[in-house]
Amino acid sequence: MLTVVTGGSGSGKSAYAEDLLLSYGPGERIYIATMFPFDEESHKRIARHRDMRRDKGFKTVECYTGLDKLDIPSDAHVLLECMSNLVANEMFQEGGAGGQVVGAVIDGIRALQRSVAQICVVTNEIFSGSQSYDGETRLYQENLGAINCRIVEMADVAVEVVYGIPLYIKGKGEKV
């Protein structure tokens, strides 16, 4: 089953997604971490998330690009966090998919869907800000928006988290 969890910054979507994974019961829990630690703030952010999931039994697998190349055991429960970082890495990192980002990421999610039973993807709402952007930022929004639409199409359940409150936009979902 594929579940997509979305929401704004600081909406509580990570905590919701982690609890969702715990609700699947016993099994190896794999956390696919996509944030590349490039400065102090990102190190802090990563440390905060590590703290949040410390006692929840996750094995962390770092994946900055090339989701389709990951080798994940088939009985694992997978939490990918988060799509917005993966897309930025694929677009802007050396060796990333560049202009092929949408196809590459969707192929990666498909590969995961084929190999494991439970996947939860955390993504991000970055589309309702007040500024209009051009160039790379605009393209980044366009790519992430397209990927969000595609993965929700593929998903069984999609949920928007508003300050910790789940609002189901597709499928019924299990209340955590």
Binding site: G10, S11, E41, E125, F127, S130, V162
Partner: peptide
Amino acid sequence: EVGYGVVPVDAHER
């Protein structure tokens, strides 16, 4: 609700 835009460049805004 203010968290629905692109992550701001300015550190205070973030």
